[in-house]
Amino acid sequence: MMNEPLLEISGLKKYYPKKDGLFQGKKSWIKAVDGMDLTIGKGETLGLVGESGCGKSTTGRMIVGLEDPTEGTVSFKGNDLSRVDKRELGKQMQMIFQDPFSSLNPRMKVSDVIAEPLRLHKDGSRAEQQRRVDELLERVGLRSEHGRRYPSEFSGGQRQRIGIARAIALSPSLIVCDEPVSALDVSIQAQVLNLLKDLQKELGVSYLFIAHGIQAVKYISDRIAVMYLGKVVEVASKDELFRNPKHPYTESLLSAVPRPDPKLRGRDRIILKGDLPSPENPPSGCRFHTRCPKVMDVCKQVEPSLQVTRDGTYAACHLVSEAEMKQPQEA
């Protein structure tokens, strides 16, 4: 699945300062993203899953340039993004947002919303832009006369389609989808997921699909990266991830998903104890050790690095590296 990487993230960090009280005595940092490496291939969909506060949205925002990384680089088509003119980036990268109600300016007509990227980049004449908007509206399953209306006249699903039309207006090569279906009703989610899939086939665009809904991620992704407290703990092709999760966190995450089949009740489930630790003060060693059902002594002191395993997946866990080290001897 991996051909030439379109996007490469290395050592990406984002720390937010936290003010303590009125007079800002000691400064502490919220480590939203704390050292991330990822690649996204051309025409590929990379799913990014994790629980709230794990840094997945922050990662997406850094990629499209809405936030500056504290450390590390994002390179797109081989160019370091910190050295690229951000305004030109819009032609290449776009974003689809979670909340269909706040993602469209309520005082702009739908056709103006969709035409905005075209106007910003002076792409074509007014008439050409209008034709393109009509085309885009129909492409996402709306009608061209919908362009004359205002966003408030549309349902959540329709608004999300408008947001998608805006995102593909300039034919970008990467779209960051930040929880694009989690605010929608179940029956509408499927419509939007199918639309995204169809568009990808047609346009060859890559997606970074950020979501906490694991079913949707599985449906749309080629590969999936799992994040926990600002770090990637596992990256694998989706089939491999679901068939054979390497990291105990991935395992428990998958097992926690409620399945729409009552016959699966009473299956062995891993139910994690306790809450997510605060990203301000992450646990020493492996960040997951406070909740890990397979915790060992080494996990509390040494932080495992993301290592490639025999079947080409990546995982950051001492158990995995141990098993991998034994492999050659067995063979």
């Binding site: 925002r61 499209v64 340039g65 809405l66 951000k86 305004r87 030109e88 980036l89 819009g90 032609k91 990268m93 776009q94 974003m95 947002f97 979670q98 909340d99 706040s102 993602s103 469209l104 300016n105 919303v113 905005e116 990227p117 910003l120 980049h121 947001g163 805006r166 300039l170």
Partner: peptide, 14 residues
Amino acid sequence: SEAYVYAAKVSGAG
């Protein structure tokens, strides 16, 4: 901090 402002920025709005 509305998403439509971010959308404009992502598209390259100054």
